[in-house]
Design a protein around this nucleic acid. Structure first.
Lengths: 149, 149
DNA sequence: GCGGATATAAAGCGCGTGCAAGTATTTCGT
DNA sequence: ACGAAATACTTGCACGCGCTTTATATCCGC
């Protein structure tokens, strides 16, 4: 086994760890948000991304990138949230192909109610991951991430 | 904003980064494996996990954990792969409630054919991620992960 | 032995996803 | 200025997933 093979194995190992941690967190969040606030993780992600734009709007395609979703999934997700009155579609004047989305007051409120749950469950999931030998190093790295920017 | 709020924000930021990187890799792999070898990422993960046990078998529940899947999904996944002749169910002698799964020669062969694609696409996705400012630090951390064990 | 817990299967249900095809609108080449 | 190519979003379709229920076989403590 040469150096190149090692590199391949290291990447694969890293990816497996990443996937495992992601799965753990996602499952925890999914259950908590769904049962407590009728929101899926992607839905929360979208609302959160919109709120982070603070008063400004986002295009569907930007939203798709932010949530790592396909175009079609984004359309339906936005439709879903729009019908629940959590956001609004705004046709854009300068490029009439584009559609902006914006949080409604109801959307902001639901997000505010949900955020504590989200943060608590996230902290909890990370703590559990840290107690798992295979995942601990990644969790550590994650905590140190902002310093590296 | 106090120290506690900072910690919450750091966790959320880390989770967003993790999710973004995971999504990028998963989408790349999904497309490549599906179009090139008729395998989904989960299916590949399962075959890979089985091969890594090297001659030994895995229980359904272990498989479920390894692939971050629910019980029902695992049953169907194994059934699917079994019908394609890639693995076999083996009733276990010592605990006859349990069912072991084992790669067939055909499964090993398909895995061997698929692995190069998998590794290439993974390397490629990581390279693209490293070129993205927000993701680069995490990718770095991932590379350094094995050293931290 | 007997009863409660555990491991898996199978089937039904609703749901969200990606892909491919379709429509509208803008941009570009000449 | 006109048609082709590119872009933004939508819709039809098939598929896999999670959850729940029903069923079966097996193990373990008492």
């Amino acid at each position: 086994m040469g150096i190149a093979d090692d590199a391949v194995e290291i990447r694969a190992q890293g990816w497996r760890t990443l996937a495992a941690l992601h799965g753990l967190i996602e499952t925890s969040l999914e259950r908590a948000l769904h049962s407590g606030h009728d929101l899926s993780v992607v839905e929360y992600t979208v609302l959160d991304a919109l709120s982070r734009q603070d008063g400004w709007h986002m295009r569907m395609s930007q939203l798709a990138r932010a949530a790592a979703l396909s175009g079609s999934a984004t359309t339906r997700l936005v439709t879903r949230l729009e019908q629940r009155g959590l956001l609004t579609r705004i046709l854009c004047a300068d490029d009439r192909r584009g559609i902006y989305t914006e949080l409604t007051p109801a959307g902001s409120e639901l997000l505010a109610q949900t955020r504590p749950t989200h943060d608590r469950v996230l902290a909890d999931a990370l703590a559990r991951a840290e107690a798992t030998p295979e995942l601990a190093p990644l969790v550590d790295a994650l905590h140190r991430l902002p310093a590296a920017r």
